[in-house]
Amino acid sequence: MNITLNKITLAALTLLGTSFTSNLFAADISHSLRNKQQDNSTENYFELGLGLATGAGPTVEEDKDNEWAGAFLVVNGSYNWRGFFIEKFGESTDPLVLGFNAYTGDNWSLDIVLVPKGRGIQGGEDDRFNGLDDRDSSTMFGGRLTGYIDDNIVQFSVKHNIGSNHQGTTASALIGRNWQVRNWNFHSMAGVRFFDAKLNDYYLGISADEAARTDFDEYSPGSNLNLTAEVGVTYPITEDWVFRSTARFAQFLGDKTDSPIFVDKRDNAMSLTTSISYVF
């Protein structure tokens, strides 16, 4: 098992549209689940903490076990001002979510969001990637509709790349719920996310030019779906300290993990994270 959670591990997880913490698509609803209020309220807060994570998934490095573990920094927060908001929830690797709350009703909320998507592999980051183009971070723009139905939260999201990276599109549908057992706050979530071929090809494809100058075979993945599930618990240790633990599982449908970029081509990933944070 790797006892590091290095940039390449994170890049591999980014390639898959997941991460060891709340993945890109799960972050929003995870935040909602962990912060669900009967009045659909939101708040301004900031917290810092430390966490431990372990997991397994496809790898992009030679001679690396497909299990990993490491420590990570928790940087969570949100700030809302006249409908505009910045969200950061995901324990270090998640990009920011910038948005504007266009509508909030008793049961539904519609946000316009701008989401920086993490970068993928970098050509000079590992000898194995020499000759490959950098898979840079990209910006996704779209909407997210969140509904509060009985004790469930549902969230639908569509985002499209703006800029010149890949012009790809993702869409997701998630459902979750939370429940309180004394002062412990549990949540569960399941969902599906769609990645179109453009996005997958940008992060996981091997172009003819790249194939010509490297040992990688040309490869062009199609669109795919990720199925995800998550359970977690949040506990207020004191008025300022919060404990969290979350288990996540993702199943990658389609052929995206067949990409030559991956050494271990398993088609699922899982993680367990635990953290303690100070809430300012």
């Binding site: 708040e43 008025e239 809430v279």
Partner: peptide, 8 residues
């Protein structure tokens, strides 16, 4: 409470 929310 840890999180003192504000209403939207």
């Amino acid at each position: 409470w840890v999180y003192k929310s504000k209403k939207r």
